[in-house]
Simulated assay, not measured.
Amino acid sequence: MTEMHSSFVASAQRVIAIETKAIQAMQARLDSAFEKACDILFNCKGKVVVSGMGKSGHVGHKIAATLASTGTPSFFMHPGEANHGDLGMLSENDVLLAISNSGETVELINLLPVLKRLNVPVIAMTNSKTSTLGRYADVVLDISVAEEACSLGLAPTSSTTVTLVLGDALAIALLDARGFTSDDFALSHPGGSLGRKLLLKVSDIMLTGPELPIVKTTATVSDALLEISRKGLGMTAIVDDHQVMQGIFTDGDLRRILDAKVDIHATCVAQIMTRGGKTIGEEELAVEALNLMEMYKISALMVVDDNHIPIGAFNMHMLLKAGVL
């Protein structure tokens, strides 16, 4: 490693060490103010409106997004735009989460008289309880730091990290208090891969009806191979006269019997099928099906009902197409 590259690493380590200490210091001073802030947010009948200028605004955007995705309705309001009409987004049922390191951000301070008239609770994230914002707020959450990680002591670094972590702490404390579940989370993320994994069920992707690969226990191996070829899933279910699944026959089974020189035209598939076979229910999550397939190193699954009658089938390619992989 060159001397220059070594200095890069040393600088990064110093930054991380300073910001880690800042987070630990913030954690140690969490007190009843945090509990009060959570109570106000938990009991909010409207929305949590997050506001801040500059770097505080960037952090505020993320905090608002995290709150919204974890069960606390929230949005970001730019304080500059709020002074020119956007304050109309705020209602008397809302709560304002105002972020200002100094507590003297002019654009936020200018909003205070209107907030007082609306009787909107204010939670301030600032480093000064005695600042204008700190004195006005119903609750002050301390985001002060011993030093910024910037070697010049100018760029907001440690302070923005502490603010972001404190915002996450608020969001997750509220998530836990609400009993917010993975299903709730998925409902607010329907378009992403996470939503697909949490929402998509086996019934949403499986083939049904005439597309199902099924043969009777009396069928020959040749009949089973034709069914596998027609349905294109690389396997077929073997059922009895009552349509109850008795086993499964796959491409892998075929390779094994060919090595054993089995007569595929004269041999009954029930003699060489894999008895039982791995199956899954239609209400199971598609991601659970994926886990099952990976665990047993299989590429397709039959879906059965409570009576073990095949009602669907799918393979790994279909999971990939559905975005589960």
Results as ranks from 00 to 15, higher is better:
3 E>W: 15
5 H>V: 15
9 V>Y: 15
10 A>E: 11
16 I>A: 11
17 A>P: 11
20 T>W: 12
25 A>D: 10
25 A>Q: 12
26 M>K: 06
28 A>L: 13
28 A>D: 14
32 S>V: 14
36 K>L: 08
44 C>Q: 03
62 K>G: 14
63 I>A: 10
67 L>S: 07
74 S>N: 07
76 F>M: 04
77 M>P: 12
83 N>E: 09
85 G>H: 13
92 E>Y: 03
102 S>E: 01
103 G>Y: 03
106 V>W: 03
112 L>N: 04
120 V>C: 10
122 V>D: 07
122 V>L: 04
125 M>H: 13
130 T>C: 02
131 S>C: 10
136 Y>P: 14
137 A>V: 09
138 D>T: 10
142 D>F: 08
150 C>K: 01
151 S>T: 02
159 S>T: 04
164 L>Y: 15
168 D>G: 10
175 L>W: 07
181 T>R: 08
201 K>L: 04
221 V>A: 07
221 V>G: 10
229 S>N: 13
230 R>K: 13
230 R>E: 00
235 M>F: 05
236 T>Y: 00
238 I>H: 09
246 Q>W: 04
251 D>C: 02
259 D>V: 14
260 A>D: 14
264 I>F: 01
266 A>H: 14
272 I>D: 05
283 E>T: 14
286 A>Q: 06
288 E>G: 12
314 F>Q: 11
314 F>M: 06
320 L>H: 14
324 V>D: 04
